[in-house]
Amino acid sequence: MAVHRIFAMAFAKVYPLYVQKAERKGRTQEEVDRVICWLTGYDGAGLQRQIESGNDFETFFAQAPAMHPNTALIQGVVCGVRVEEIDDPLMQKIRYLDKLVDELAKGKKMESILRK
């Protein structure tokens, strides 16, 4: 099975793009951080350490304290693929994150994004 290039991409290179996408739509970096922390279980300091360390996505998710138990409720299409149908667990986690940031940028309420 081919390894996707994004697995080796530094999370710190993509993180500013998530923030820019959200800010262009009137959302904040704090909201992006909240979504990431909800998904992965990182606290603010842990997220900052991951950004500063330059870890790739594979390491970022491998070191995540705990994926939120409601991740199975994240559904929809990202990059033309339904996130709930992705077979590769790491790719699915990356696409979950993409989907949450997309929802944030589209103006969804935080309660909805965090699957409350």
Rank of each mutant, 00 (worst) to 15 (best):
E111H: 12
D56Q: 10
K116N: 11
M9C: 10
I113E: 01
C37S: 05
M110W: 13
F11Y: 15
V81S: 12
H68N: 15
E111G: 09
L97W: 00
A12C: 12
K13N: 14
M9L: 14
G107F: 12
D56W: 08
G76P: 01
L100N: 01
Y96L: 00
A105Y: 04
I6R: 15
Q29A: 07
L17G: 05
I36E: 01
G54N: 13
E84T: 12
G54A: 13
S112Y: 13
R49D: 14
L73G: 00
A66I: 04
T71H: 00
E30W: 07
V78S: 03
T71R: 01
L73A: 13
K25E: 09
Q20S: 13
R82I: 06
M9S: 11
R82E: 14
L39M: 10
K93E: 02
S112D: 10
V77I: 15
A62Y: 12
L114G: 03
Q29M: 06
Q29T: 06
L39R: 01
D98Y: 10
V101E: 09
E31R: 05
I51G: 03
D98H: 15
Q20I: 08
M9F: 13
R95E: 01
R27G: 06
D56T: 13
K99L: 13
L104G: 01
L90A: 04
Q75W: 00
K93L: 02
D98P: 02
C37R: 12
E84I: 09
Q48W: 05
H4P: 03
D102C: 07
F11W: 06
R5A: 14
K13D: 15
I86A: 00
M67L: 14
Y15C: 04
T40W: 00
V3W: 07
L17F: 08
G76H: 00
L39V: 02
R5Y: 08
G76Y: 00
V35M: 06
Q48Y: 06
G46E: 02
G41K: 12
D88K: 07
E111L: 09
